[in-house]
Write a protein that binds this DNA or RNA. Structure first.
Length: 467
RNA sequence: GGAGAGAUGGCUGAGUUGGUCGAAAGCGCUCGACUCGAAAUCGAGUAGGCGCCCGAAAUGGUGCCUCGAGAGUUCGAAUCUCUCUCUCUCCGCCA
């Protein structure tokens, strides 16, 4: 959630933010006119956004106008109702005094009865406006950081760096589904029988490999990077989902339990970030760094037909998550180091990857800046997302009300900055290892860093199916 | 799931015939005095939110709200009523 006072002070800030994210109504005649006058099509293109941004101060956006109107109305009513309450409080004391002195107070009582009724009506109005304003603010995305490049989508994400070389293979690489089935460590058919599409069963060395991966990740972050390991609930209430921004806008993405007000977490970010919801942390405690392994549950609504084969996109998957609570002055340094911590996993596993910066149009709802880590998949001959590392600045902290305070006398509480990143998605790491470490016979070498977690095993060998 | 008790400021804890209570007291913490320094002692301060005024801003002034959450009774609620949440004790069930 954004700060209403910041919007009040500088509406152009928010206008610019929405334009950079490409949240423009291209059916609006004013927008169409502006673009066609410049010889541009009324479509979400970089050129169109650039033009609109140059004229940002004049581009009207309904949602912003609504927010400003509601804010003005709210303050108007507040002013009036607070004046009445002050009057009532004074009169109440007067009544108390008169009663104590055995003086009559009937006239005051009658007058205050009327004032109280008036207050009640105005209080209801304030509550209604508050609700409306909150509902609106909750659907406004975060403001992209100044360093985020303008873009309309994935194709505009600049590559920051690369690490490792895809291994040259003298044979056509198989994908992880073929390899997994031949090795007898992956069973998608029976998972479909048990539950449905987008679920999987790992067995034997496959299950062991999965467990080895997350254990290795947790150990690395805990021992080398200074994170505190957390094992949180896998279900959370609606308040937590609102705190990190999954609700109210993305309810369709979530699995909700029937008969309870609980949701399955789509990522450990939700319980880990909301851990300090409503609290004021001592400034000296910052930064606080959490890592946690959890299964994650996503309905993947709207992704029909995408990544339907294999483990890339599942309703349930395992992930190790990194979460930081940082001082606002240092949150961007913390983003760099968090990204480096996630990269370290790929480096140790010897997996080739690259880092991209998400452009403004590809940025998630709550994020101010995001780096994606993409790992090389030989079967697809391209890089695929395996981690997403973001700074949310005070966007989540404001929603979840997470603050910090210094020691000094005049120290005022302020919102912390929250960050998180996958460190890493375990299932996709499993895929990357199986594919990148395959040989022509369909065996899979175990990366050295993982061998201690696999009882010293150096490769996964084909097994006869159990049945 | 059944029965009972409770939820007050950083902590402990008073406040239940509704009236000057945002809240006693103690502890903790901050600042100051004393001291070469510390302890002890003494003095002062010590919740958050939202408005308005002044101001370039920090500060400041002023009003409103908050005693688990929400609703109600009343001129007025930490105190009375209802609903919900959470904690504790006992019973039942259970990994």
């Amino acid at each position: 959630m954004l700060d209403i006072r910041a919007i009040r002070q500088d509406p152009t800030l928010l206008r610019t933010a929405l334009l950079r994210r490409g949240e423009v109504d291209f059916a609006d005649p004013a927008v169409v006119g502006r673009l066609t006058a410049a010889g541009l099509e009324p479509k979400r293109t970089r050129a169109a956004l650039e033009l609109l941004l140059r004229e940002a101060a004049e581009v009207k956006i309904d949602r912003i106008a609504q927010i400003e109107a509601l804010d003005g109305r709210r303050r108007g009513i507040l002013f009036e109702v607070e004046r009445l309450k002050a009057e009532r409080n004074k009169a109440s004391q007067e009544i108390a005094r008169k009663k104590a002195a055995k003086e009559p107070a009937d006239d005051l009582l009658a007058r205050m009865k009327a004032v109280s009724d008036q207050i009640k009506g105005l209080d209801e109005q304030v509550a209604a406006v508050d609700r409306e304003l909150d509902d609106l603010l909750l659907t406004i995305p975060n403001i992209p950081h100044a360093s985020v490049p303008l873009g309309c989508g994935e194709e505009d994400n600049p590559e920051v760096r690369r690490h490792g070389e895809p291994r040259a293979m003298s044979f056509p690489p198989k994908d992880h589904v073929d390899l997994g089935q031949q090795l007898g460590i992956l069973d998608l058919d029976r998972a479909a029988k048990l539950t449905g599409a987008r679920f999987s069963v790992l067995l034997g060395d496959g299950a062991l490999l999965e467990r080895a991966i997350w254990t290795f990740m947790l150990d690395l972050h805990r021992e080398q990077h200074g994170y505190t390991e957390v094992l949180p609930p896998l279900m959370v209430n609606a308040g937590s989902m609102r705190g990190t921004g999954q609700l109210p806008k993305f309810e369709a993405e979530l699995f909700k339990l029937a008969g309870h007000d609980y949701y399955l977490i789509p990522t450990a970010e939700v319980p880990l970030t909301n851990y300090f919801a409503g609290e004021i942390l001592p400034e000296s405690a910052l930064p606080i760094k959490f890592c946690g392994y959890t299964p994650c549950f996503r309905s993947e609504a709207g992704s029909y037909g995408k990544d339907t084969r294999g483990l890339i996109r599942q309703h349930q998957f395992n992930k190790v998550e990194l979460v930081k609570f940082a001082h606002p002055d240092r949150s961007y340094e913390e983003l760099e180091s968090l990204t480096a911590d996630a990269e370290q996993v790929l480096k140790r596993l010897g997996l080739p990857y690259r880092v991209v910066t998400l452009s403004s149009g590809d940025l998630g709802f709550s994020a101010a800046k995001t780096y994606d880590l993409e790992v090389w998949l030989p079967s697809q001959q391209r890089f695929r997302e395996i981690s997403s590392c973001s700074n949310f600045e005070d966007f989540q902290a404001r929603r979840a009300n997470i603050r910090f305070k210094g020691e000094g006398k005049g120290a005022k509480p302020a919102f912390v900055h929250t960050l998180n990143g996958s460190g890493l998605a375990v299932g996709r790491t499993w895929v990357a290892i199986v594919e990148n470490y395959q040989d022509e016979q369909g065996r899979v070498a175990v990366p050295e860093a993982l061998r201690p977690y696999l009882g010293g095993k150096t490769s996964l060998e084909p097994h006869q199916p159990l049945a």
